[in-house]
Design a protein around this nucleic acid. Structure first.
Lengths: 184, 184
DNA sequence: TCCTACATGTAAGGCGTTACATGATTTA
DNA sequence: TAAATCATGTAACGCCTTACATGTAGGA
């Protein structure tokens, strides 16, 4: 159950509400993990009962009241021992690549069109990551943000992935064009 | 439900048993999809009932009897209309990168050690892909294998991904070393 | 003799998505 | 006036993993 550990990791950095945690997944972790609030709230409940985290009710005017969670020493232990275990080979699911695998069932024109769409989608994602980079890490790994080095590493991995995806789309399209030339 | 479409895709290429299909996921599609036999057998059953595929009992000596499935015209329609829909942004889950995100909870020595382990794991995966490439696509996209072009594209994506992962590991380790030098 | 390949199934339980449900305040 | 933000929850259903279950033939 890695979501539990992801929540412990985020709470090891700062106290947060379920709402905050949900947003962190959306905004800065989407290329390697994600979870909706309907999964997060019940899990926080359960983790609190198991003594991994604790919360405090905070009453607010103007805004709804909230529950602010923090990690307990026991939670920290659980996090660290999880980090030390070498991860098993992660099994990706990429519906987009899965479709490409079966593109022989479409016309060549159509597949080129779909590959162009993919390239544009990757470009848009890349632009988003670059904005994050410019905002939070303006001078790269040397940016003086405490605790931010590994967050920067994972963002870099996202950027490299998107760049590589774009190169792959271009290469695939060029291969299809070559094939067309040969057969005509 | 993409597994259904993955099965249709594989059956659009050749008749197969549940066992064959299970092996194809393991051997050549693991970097973008996976499924175990306990998921595949009941789903084939259901798809047969819905008229997407049909099967024939084949009695064998020496080996257990088997059910050979083939795709129906209706299955082919379902496959093609799925292919035409632009995929929604795929949401990856990469436990390995998730751990990296929280490495600040470990010592710097330890994180370097773990990153080296990752690099070696990616190298091993890459070696496996390269063997597949040498076996099935010895002269690249021009290899005269009918229907094999898109299978080659997806394999190339796997190779590029692993190469990029290795570069990222090296880069991360070098960043950590620099930081150590600065602070000492 | 033990392991691997071939071959097909079921069952329990956990994980994850989508939809339902509420409601005040701020911004466009 | 409509939408977004803040904020927390529940329920139904489907997907997926792990384990249980069985049996033959061939190779090391």
């Amino acid at each position: 159950m890695s979501l539990k550990h992801a929540l412990l990791g985020l709470l090891s950095e700062r106290e947060s509400t379920g709402y905050d945690l949900t947003k962190m997944f959306e905004l800065s972790m989407s290329h390697y993990w994600h979870a909706g609030h309907s999964q997060i709230y019940p899990l926080l409940d359960q983790m609190e009962k198991n003594g991994l985290i604790a919360f405090e009710h905070v009453v607010q005017k103007d805004k709804p009241n909230k529950k602010v969670y923090r990690i307990t020493p026991r939670g920290r232990e659980t996090l660290v021992s999880w980090l030390k275990v070498p991860p098993t080979l992660s099994r990706y699911k990429d519906e987009s690549l899965l479709k490409v695998r079966f593109f022989q069932n479409l016309s060549e024109e159509h597949t080129i069109e779909l590959l162009r769409d993919r390239r544009r989608a990757h470009q848009a994602t890349l632009d988003g990551y670059r904005k994050l980079e410019a905002t939070y890490f303006p001078v790269g790994p040397a940016t003086p943000v405490r605790r931010g080095l590994f967050a920067y590493f994972t963002l870099r991995r996202g950027i490299m992935f998107e760049e590589e995806s774009i190169r792959w789309c271009r290469w695939s399209i060029s291969q299809l064009r070559k094939k067309k030339t040969r057969s005509s």
